[in-house]
Design a protein around this nucleic acid. Sequence first.
DNA 1: ACCAAATGTAAAATATACTTTACATATTGT
DNA 2: ACAATATGTAAAGTATATTTTACATTTGGT
Lengths: 66, 66
Amino acid sequence: MKNRIKVERAEKDLSQADLAGQIGVSRQTINSIETGRYVPSTILALKLAQVFEKTVNEIFQLEETD
Amino acid sequence: MKNRIKVERAEKDLSQADLAGQIGVSRQTINSIETGRYVPSTILALKLAQVFEKTVNEIFQLEETD
DNA sequence: ACCAAATGTAAAATATACTTTACATATTGT
DNA sequence: ACAATATGTAAAGTATATTTTACATTTGGT
C-alpha cells in the first residue's frame, strides 16, 4: 500500500511529531506508516484523512502486492 | 467507528461469506468488522471500498469515542 | 414443520499494530 | 561550524486483528 503522508505533511508544514500529537499516536507510529513499515488501522487512516482534509482513498492506495 | 457494510452487502446481494471470499479474508473477519467487534486494517478497508465501488469514508465513519 | 443457508459468537493460536525508550543520522537556521 | 530540530530505525513489551474450528441461532424457501 502506498501513501501520500509525507506530501500532505509538507503541504500543511507539519512535522511527524506535530502530526502524531494531533492524532494521538507516537511519532514512531507516524514514521512507520509513512515509510511503509506497517499498515495503520482504519481509525488511524480516517484521522489522518481528517487532518489533511482529504478522503482516505486520496491518501492511501492499494498496490498489486496487497 | 461506524460502518455501512451490512447495507452495502445488501445492495450487492452478497453474503458475508461471498464478501470474505472476494477479499480473501475469513467470514468471521467480515462478521466481526460488520458488528463492530474490531477495526480492520486500512488495506482491508480499501478492498471493501473497492468491492462496493465507494470510498473508504463512505463506508466507515469516526465516532466521538474514536 | 423441515431443510439449507446465513449469521452471531467464542476460544485458542498467530500475526501485526502501536508504545516506549533509546540512539544515530540528517537537515536547517544562525 | 554549532546547536536545535526532524527523521530513520531498532528492540522489547503490550494490545489488537485475523484465522481456524466449532457450535448455536436465525432466516428463507418449500
